[in-house]
Design a protein around this nucleic acid. Structure first.
Lengths: 202, 202
DNA sequence: AGCTTAAAGCTAATCGCATTAGCTGACCCT
DNA sequence: AGGGTCAGCTAATGCGATTAGCTTTAAGCT
């Protein structure tokens, strides 16, 4: 065999680091090759395309984020688990905005795409955390989606610089987590709120 | 003067329609030109670049969404206003996913970018709605950010096909709105929750 | 009606970036 | 020492955005 300096995994790592620096949208094969000290076409010896590369970065990100969230939740329960998990996720996105963007930009390529178990692992951690609140089983899915929506939305808006006012974003995040905690502890009842349903259909 | 068939505004409208069909990422000058029955370079007589085009679509989207939300909130207050506003926003994103993506992809180009007042108008509607809950003034900013995070996160995840399980997404949205409503009505107290702060810095 | 002229559109050309084709050299194994 | 395999290279292709420069249309004026 010839020299094995680079591997798909090491290329993916380098791409992940690059994407966190320059932003997912600015990822280019040329830039990555330059970082690795090789010429652009040589990259194709390790990944099959830029889409494949992004896909690998997404899987890496989901694994890392999944580990971070699992570890944060580990050994805690209820409010503690929620706060620790949420903080871990926010921290991950702040430290790795490009990887997180990659994870959001990519769609599973098929039924046996490793992306699927990787994201399921993340969801499983959230589910384990939520189970500590002893919610009504019929509401768990809604609580899960609400949780995902808030955390994803907050992380995305923060990464995009969407929070302009000078008020502390850290404080808002703490408030948000507390808000969720109180809601989950209260065991929100279903029941529609507001005027008769309109344009959302259903 | 010559024929004035197309204008920057009409080109932007066409781009908005196109982007809702094919997705923001698949917008291309060639595709848009084809839709308009002209050749690609002719587009540059109306918009200065693809980035400029995306920027115009984003402004259009913010105006439309802002109107929709304002109209929905109009004449309601409290839970009704929240539910109507949230539904209006979700409906807008579902009907115009490409425009919404454009609005999120674009950053203001300067201090007098028309994008800024357009997004402020949206924020103002949410603020007006929230004021009906009579929250502690110090908490309003946090409630606002929480609200934006959830709605943005939900809309984004839904548009990305992120809600896989067969449980009704409509029902989850109703639950989410109710969850917010109860939290706002309870006037969440600040106070950190969970273990001592860790990696989020602060 | 005819002339002027600015703008709308077109063709041809450039540029950057992803990707492919085909060659070469290094390294491991026998 | 000899061979096979693979990493990396150079050269070439192709597509999409953008620019340059020409042509044509049609509104407004006389």
């Amino acid at each position: 065999m010839p020299r094995a300096r680079l591997t798909p995994a090491s290329v993916t790592e380098a791409a992940a680091a690059l994407v966190d620096e320059v932003g997912f949208d600015n990822l280019s094969m040329g830039l990555l090759a330059e970082r690795l000290g090789i010429k652009t076409p040589s990259l194709y010896k390790h990944v099959s395309s830029q889409a494949d590369l992004a896909h690998r970065v997404a899987i890496l990100a989901l694994h890392e984020a999944g580990d971070a969230i699992r570890d944060a939740i580990q050994g805690r329960s209820g409010s503690d688990a929620l706060a620790a998990g949420a903080r871990a996720m926010r921290a991950y996105v702040r430290e790795h905005p490009g990887r997180y963007a990659a994870a959001n930009a990519v769609r599973p390529a098929g039924p046996d795409d490793p992306l699927i178990p990787a994201s399921e692992r993340v969801l499983a951690s959230w589910a384990a955390m939520l189970s500590g609140y002893g919610l009504d089983p019929g509401q768990e899915i809604h609580a899960m989606r609400t949780l995902r929506s808030v955390l994803h939305g907050f992380a995305t808006l923060e990464a995009a610089g969407g929070f302009q006012i000078d008020a502390s974003v850290d404080e808002s995040f703490t408030w948000l987590v507390s808000f969720l905690d109180q809601g989950f502890r209260a065991g929100t009842t279903v029941g529609a709120v507001g005027p008769a349903a309109g344009e959302t259909g259903h």
